Amino acid sequence: MAKAFGTEFMPEMAITWFDGDSWDTPEMVSSDSLPMHPASHVLHYSSTCFEGLKAFRQEDGAIKIFRMDQNIKRFAQSSRLLALPPINETTTRQMILDTVAKFKDQVPNAPGSMYIRPTHMGTEQSIGKAAGPSSTSCQFILLSPVGDYFSSGASALRVLIDDEGMRCAPHMGMIKSGGNYASALNPILEAREKYQADQILFAPNGDVQETGAANFLLIDGNEIITKALDESFLHGVTRDSLLTIARDNGMKISERELPVTELLERIKDPRCEAALSGTAAVLAPVGTFIYKDEEYSVGNGQLGPVTKQLRSQLNAIQWGQAEDKHDWLTTV
């Protein structure tokens, strides 16, 4: 039986420690444990951030990492906004390359990939710094070989629209931190139990934002409508990649506020599609919205042609089957 997505790991990981003045030399260590004092800042005050990116095996056997530099920039930004010690982007880049190179033989063939999880966390041994940052930290690179996210087929999702709550504190939205995901867990679990929903689309003040773990795109004919970037939600690398491909296809991209009322009106059109974008699933179709105890079908309720095309085009670049004209791939 295949293991669940993200539950299998390579036996070693790259790690480096910041002692308050400088980072030590990265080394490869066993990935089955991590020495940490119970008073470590991260365990009490959630001073941690992470990234998610993938390495892909090309048709000629080469291994390439997708948009690594963009993920590292966001990793540095998250660290800065959490008041963690600043990372050295060059060192982080080399740690990723070295770790993937060590296990390049374990990168699955397409449609599988090697999921890469850089993580940064505060390690200062102090439970008295609730209002202060950690002066020391740890950074590591964990690898997880994964299969096709849609191994059982790209089933359309059921999504509950919540126009009262929000995924996380507005000023924390653009930080990729575990606390943001944790804050959305209970609402999502309740939505699953009550509505059999797969996710929640948060729409604070009645304007569509993002789900608990993915960005949102509304595809109406030749136009994609999605919230304009601000600090309240995550600036997805996959989102940016898909919008770039859509522009290359001649589509109109409208980054603006999208009221729930407009969303529900637009999806009445059978051409309309809705999708969630993220590193794991790339672009997942939404077939049904639930809002105020009523269900609304999106188009024909199944995977739409534009969603399928955009996902296929992005996969083709990642797998080396199409031209990488935006220089998104880094060779290991």
Results as ranks from 00 to 15, higher is better:
residue 307 T to M: 13
residue 96 I to M: 04
residue 204 P to S: 07
residue 189 L to C: 14
residue 135 S to D: 14
residue 18 F to W: 13
residue 217 L to C: 13
residue 274 A to V: 01
residue 99 T to K: 04
residue 143 L to Y: 00
residue 100 V to N: 05
residue 146 V to R: 07
residue 37 H to T: 00
residue 257 E to N: 10
residue 152 S to L: 10
residue 163 D to S: 12
residue 270 P to G: 09
residue 155 S to C: 13
residue 171 H to F: 11
residue 192 R to W: 14
residue 310 L to I: 09
residue 293 D to P: 07
residue 217 L to K: 08
residue 210 E to G: 05
residue 280 A to S: 15
residue 82 L to K: 04
residue 80 R to C: 09
residue 155 S to K: 15
residue 49 C to H: 05
residue 127 I to A: 15
residue 88 N to Y: 01
residue 193 E to H: 15
residue 328 W to M: 06
residue 174 M to Y: 06
residue 228 A to W: 01
residue 188 I to Y: 08
residue 110 A to C: 13
residue 237 V to W: 09
residue 317 I to L: 09
residue 121 M to L: 13
residue 108 P to I: 11
residue 274 A to N: 03
residue 91 T to V: 10
residue 258 L to E: 01
residue 288 T to Q: 13
residue 129 K to V: 12
residue 263 L to A: 05
residue 275 A to T: 00
residue 220 D to S: 07
residue 23 W to R: 01
residue 81 L to T: 05
residue 290 I to C: 08
residue 209 Q to W: 00
residue 53 L to Q: 03
residue 203 A to F: 02
residue 279 T to Q: 12
residue 251 M to N: 07
residue 274 A to L: 04
residue 232 S to G: 11
residue 325 K to I: 09
residue 226 T to H: 03
residue 312 S to K: 13
residue 140 F to Q: 02
residue 173 G to T: 00
residue 84 L to G: 05
residue 50 F to H: 05
residue 88 N to M: 06
residue 43 L to G: 00
residue 16 T to N: 13
residue 57 R to W: 14
residue 68 M to S: 01
residue 200 I to P: 00
residue 298 V to F: 09
residue 57 R to Y: 14
residue 331 T to N: 09
residue 23 W to S: 01
residue 270 P to H: 05
residue 122 G to M: 01
residue 256 R to D: 02
residue 111 P to D: 08
residue 6 G to R: 04
residue 117 R to L: 09
residue 268 K to G: 04
residue 317 I to P: 03
residue 39 A to C: 11
residue 248 D to S: 11
residue 91 T to L: 12
residue 218 L to C: 04
residue 214 A to Q: 03
residue 41 H to S: 15
residue 301 G to T: 01
residue 182 A to H: 05
residue 96 I to S: 01
residue 147 G to E: 06
residue 88 N to R: 11
residue 22 S to L: 08
residue 17 W to C: 10
residue 33 S to T: 04
residue 116 I to M: 07
residue 35 P to N: 03
residue 114 M to F: 09
residue 199 Q to E: 15
residue 96 I to L: 02
residue 131 A to H: 12
residue 136 T to N: 15
residue 159 V to M: 13
residue 46 S to E: 10
residue 121 M to V: 06
residue 62 A to T: 10
residue 313 Q to W: 03
residue 184 A to R: 07
residue 150 F to W: 15
residue 204 P to G: 02
residue 73 K to S: 12
residue 201 L to D: 08
residue 134 S to P: 03
residue 153 G to L: 05
residue 68 M to Q: 10
residue 254 S to T: 12
residue 107 V to S: 11
residue 32 D to Q: 07
residue 19 D to K: 12
residue 114 M to V: 06
residue 320 G to S: 06
residue 292 K to I: 02
residue 262 E to C: 05
residue 204 P to A: 02
residue 60 D to E: 07
residue 276 L to R: 11
residue 93 R to N: 03
residue 201 L to R: 10
residue 326 H to G: 05
